[in-house]
């Protein structure tokens, strides 16, 4: 399962990279969203998959899944959500102000402060 997951993560990273290299700002943000999914899955996979019960003591199991990667991923999810939300609002505002979402048109100019 871990090998399959590693390959899947590679596919997600590949798509995310391709999206981030595109011209449209919205696609870049879609790419970062995809990239964070990939990273979260990577964290989970590296912690080992299906090694026991869910990390709740009420389960009374002999072995539990590693709770630490889950805590890390939970933090990462929240942070990447915050960033994505901010990023989207920046994109929304730049549509409003600049009238474009083409990154090739949003270059800084010489001597611009």
């Amino acid at each position: 399962m871990e090998i399959l997951m590693s390959l899947l993560i590679g596919v997600i990273f590949m798509s995310a990279t391709y999206l981030m290299l595109s011209k449209s700002l919205l696609r870049i943000i879609v790419g970062t969203g995809l990239l964070s999914h990939g990273v979260h899955l990577l964290l989970l996979t590296m912690g080992g998959l299906k090694r026991g019960a869910a990390p709740l003591l009420g389960q009374q199991a002999e072995a539990y899944t590693d709770p630490l990667p889950q805590a890390l991923i939970l933090t990462a999810i929240v942070i990447s959500f915050g960033i994505t939300a901010l990023f989207l609002v920046v994109a929304y505002r730049s549509y409003q102000e600049l009238g474009t979402d083409n990154m090739e048109l949003m270059r800084g100019k010489e001597g611009n402060e």
Partner: peptide, 23 residues
């Protein structure tokens, strides 16, 4: 076996998609 993650991910994905649609 990560119930908390599943919950959070569901909620946040919903909000994110809403934001994407807004943009």
């Amino acid at each position: 076996r990560a119930p908390d993650l599943a919950l959070t991910q569901l909620v946040i994905e919903t909000v994110s998609v809403a934001l994407f649609l807004l943009a």
